[in-house]
Amino acid sequence: MKAGRINTAYEWWLRVCAERRARNERLWPSWRNQRRRRLLVRAWAACVLIALAFVYVGLSSVVAVFAWLAVELVVLFLYSALKVLTRQVTDVPRRLADERELALRNRYAYTGYLTGSWCLVVMMAALLPGVASDGAHGLDANQLYCLALGLLLLTTGVPTAQLAWTMPDDDPEDLADPEDLKVLTQADQGGQPRG
């Protein structure tokens, strides 16, 4: 009974993912080239660095809190945009991906795993002074929170950012209307006039 419910929920989730993918497939066609994707990756990386810089600034004032929240929201927006522009290949469910996409997902997920491991090392190092001195030294709670969230954004975003950086320009044929392509292909096949 329980397994049946889990399966139904999973099937529903797959349908949602497939619909979202299909909806986003041709979104923002003018941004589906390497130059613009790389521009977004640079902006994302800069915002993550700014988010991490708040570890030193802290969240002691209301202005700092709002500035920090604004940066986090920009990072999330850029991350979402990169996911759309890379067809969500880095976190696509296995059943929706073909062999090329699975190979790409596995390749970049490994980078994400390595980044996550190093981020944990950084987090442990940041916690160490406080642990060693029983809280007398080291970063305070809100600084640690900034650091943890910054590292989380970095880890989750690195696979998508790396894919966006390396992806070639989208082929115009992939962005064209399938009905237009059918007409063109039929004309090419028989040498018929396209009018």
Partner: peptide
Amino acid sequence: RVERGLTRAALAEAVEVNPQTIGALERGDH
């Protein structure tokens, strides 16, 4: 593909992959 009058999407559907994968195969990227 062109000789048989197939679009990338049609070929992709026939072999159960995404059209982008057909493009990557044709370009030699995959």
